[in-house]
Lab assay of single mutants.
Amino acid sequence: MTEYKLVVVGAGGVGKSALTIQLIQNHFVDEYDPTIEDSYRKQVVIDGETCLLDILDTAGQEEYSAMRDQYMRTGEGFLCVFAINNTKSFEDIHHYREQIKRVKDSEDVPMVLVGNKCDLPSRTVDTKQAQDLARSYGIPFIETSAKTRQGVDDAFYTLVREIRKHKEKMSKDGKKKKKKSKTKCVIM
């Protein structure tokens, strides 16, 4: 069974824990209790493949930012979460993405942009803004509501699919490099 290491990042209060708990335990946590770091595991079937999701729910508070490099190193894919009623959390996505790329030393890291709290009427981040940002990053965008469960499975499952595509691409690139290195030079 394939294991996928997913990391949920975003500013404090955007609903990272609520999304994760909704996926794992099928219930909505409405009281806000700032996370330092929590880890969850769940076995699911995605596109006919049974897999184990190892999900790291991270601290959004700035005082825990020193811990970010460590979990970013171990993560295979990242859910970059903002709240649709919090423009600052949307603007912060850029910083999370840049930090992930720096730590992973790669421009090509599996990510999904997630606009959470889409059940709320007080939207300050337009869907088109988020779609445009995701398009500019070359990553999928999904709106979710941890409260109603809308888009929750889709967000995590899409990230797994992005990781699969990335692994497939990397193995193809690896095979191309191996083929090239088999060419021999004969000096007579």
Rank of each mutant, 00 (worst) to 15 (best):
Q70T: 07
Y71N: 13
C118L: 08
A66P: 11
L79Y: 02
D105F: 04
G115L: 12
M67F: 09
R68I: 07
V81G: 02
T87R: 10
S89A: 09
E63D: 10
K117G: 14
G75C: 14
V114Y: 01
L79Q: 01
R73P: 11
L79D: 00
L113E: 00
S106I: 11
E76P: 01
E76I: 13
M67P: 12
R123F: 08
I100P: 01
L113C: 07
E107A: 09
V114F: 03
R73D: 13
F82W: 06
D126F: 08
V114A: 03
D105V: 04
Y64S: 14
E107S: 10
Y64G: 14
G115S: 07
K88V: 07
C118A: 12
C80E: 01
A83C: 05
V125A: 11
F82Q: 02
M72C: 06
R123L: 11
Y71H: 14
M72F: 10
V109Y: 05
S89L: 03
D108Q: 06
N116F: 00
K104H: 09
V125P: 10
K104N: 10
I100F: 04
P121R: 08
D69S: 06
V81D: 00
P110S: 02
D108A: 05
K101V: 05
P110K: 02
G75Q: 06
E63N: 13
T74H: 13
S122H: 10
F78Y: 08
T74R: 06
R73Q: 12
M72T: 08
M72P: 07
P110R: 02
E98W: 01
D126H: 07
N86Y: 02
K117H: 15
C80V: 14
D69G: 04
K104I: 10
S65W: 06
K88D: 13
S122I: 07
D69T: 04
I84A: 15
M111C: 05
L113Y: 04
Y64C: 10
S65T: 07
G77K: 01
L120P: 09
V109S: 03
Q70N: 09
R123C: 14
A66F: 07
M67N: 14
M67I: 08
K104P: 03
M111R: 00
Y96S: 02
D69R: 03
F78G: 00
K117L: 15
A83I: 01
L120E: 13
D119S: 05
G77R: 00
V125N: 10
K101G: 06
S122M: 08
K104F: 15
G77P: 00
F78R: 00
F82C: 12
C80S: 02
R123T: 12
S65D: 13
K88G: 09
R102C: 07
L79K: 00
T124G: 12
K104G: 06
D119V: 03
I100M: 05
L120R: 07
V109Q: 02
R73M: 10
G75K: 03
H94G: 06
T124V: 09
V103H: 08
E98V: 01
G77H: 01
F82L: 07
R123M: 11
E107K: 06
H94W: 12
E98K: 04
M67R: 09
P110E: 01
C80Y: 09
N116G: 08
E98M: 02
K101S: 09
D119K: 03
S106W: 12
M111I: 11
Y71W: 06
K104A: 12
